[in-house]
Write a protein that binds this DNA or RNA. Sequence first.
DNA 1: TACGATCAAACTGTAGGACAGTTTAATGAT
DNA 2: ATCATTAAACTGTCCTACAGTTTGATCGTA
Lengths: 240, 240
Amino acid sequence: MNVQFKKMKPIKSYQHVVDEIQTAICEGNLKEGETLPSEMKLKEMFDTSRGTIREALRVLEQKGLVSVRTGVNGGARIQGANAKPMTDSVAILIRQQKVSLHHLAEFRKMMEGHISEQAAKKADKKDVQRLMDILRDAAAHIQTKPSGWTEFHKMDAEFHLTLAMIAENPLLEANLTAIHDNIQIYFHQYLPWSEALLHDNFKDLCGIAAAVEQRDPGTARRIAEEHVAKFNALMEKNIE
Amino acid sequence: MNVQFKKMKPIKSYQHVVDEIQTAICEGNLKEGETLPSEMKLKEMFDTSRGTIREALRVLEQKGLVSVRTGVNGGARIQGANAKPMTDSVAILIRQQKVSLHHLAEFRKMMEGHISEQAAKKADKKDVQRLMDILRDAAAHIQTKPSGWTEFHKMDAEFHLTLAMIAENPLLEANLTAIHDNIQIYFHQYLPWSEALLHDNFKDLCGIAAAVEQRDPGTARRIAEEHVAKFNALMEKNIE
DNA sequence: TACGATCAAACTGTAGGACAGTTTAATGAT
DNA sequence: ATCATTAAACTGTCCTACAGTTTGATCGTA
């Protein structure tokens, strides 16, 4: 005997359904927005039971590949790439107290620094314009004498996500989204509201945008890192 | 009317089951290694149908929280924290061709650089010893005149993961694992085998370990970044 | 014709029952 | 004692039935 035979591992049939559909999505044979056939039809196509189909759909749903709706013309719609599974698994690590705000912030600092640096290297005029548009909206919002973070944080997140898109790496986008989605709660809970802080925050964003515009990767990284570190320090102080 | 009522969103019953069990796991009421009651018992405990329970189990399985086995004393065992969902979602991004080797390598470079730097800041004697032990094994393996990467890559991965553990941030660990698991295929496919390259690789690891031992974060980061960049450049050349 | 209300059809959501397949532990034979 | 056999406790799969949800079609009325 010179060969090692692989152990006969009976693939569970719902897994087979998952694999087929996932492959079809990844190969592009099923495109975003399309809807899969109904459970009844899938059951016949795969020659299996409805229960099996439904288990497969739950898995695909959890992977963020489809979303299922009830009613006529309902069914499983193919979803575009999204960061949901990543957000989920980070959320679990937090709930298990394996990951603290400190961990989140360290990771975020690394990412925002890197992203800003890359953005400063790669941005073209259109990209800079997009950043400026967001800043203009943010400035307008500040004029309205707001009394809480909520609105500003939306634009803040959009700004950082746009930077990630300029940096042209979907992995950075997905991870940044996951981090932002999960750090939100800490913002709401531990970041005290003050107009001075709002202006400070806004000034940091302007600084990053300016560094990107001037193609100055080093400065972009430095401001971004300091920005994250500063606000995190504030929150950590308030946790005690 | 001064308040906005939330839309009555009928929670699906399998989702309710998922939430309850997930919470119990995160709160520590269900610990790693324990097994959930059988599907029959769960069905009665939640006063629902077996199909519903099974759909919930598929979701929990996909989240990496439980793994299900057949047979007597089988059932859903609680899993410790693991990077499976992250590995999965990165794999999907790759299969959808949203993420290329270039993206993976850029991300990895950022992480390995940061990890090595942090490890050099935080390592104690025991940590350094663990790194040295791995290097000793690797050196022994090189003595055997190997003819492929497979064995070495295992130790390489272990070395980098140990660094991440020394850096004391589970987010870094999880992401690094996800990246490693997914970049493997490229190694096998595009990294040519040569003894010179093996020695080169090994030397880099020694360099990182030495920098960590000497508490030299800057050097540790530099070597790690160059290490990743070098081997990636090799692979990218072979892809064309 | 236009515009609502009503209804039917096409779906998913849930429940219950049945039996096959798999693994372990108890039982029994040598 | 040791090994094979069997029974029990599970998950895996299939079936049927009906409730709940959404939308497009139909019909009535101005």
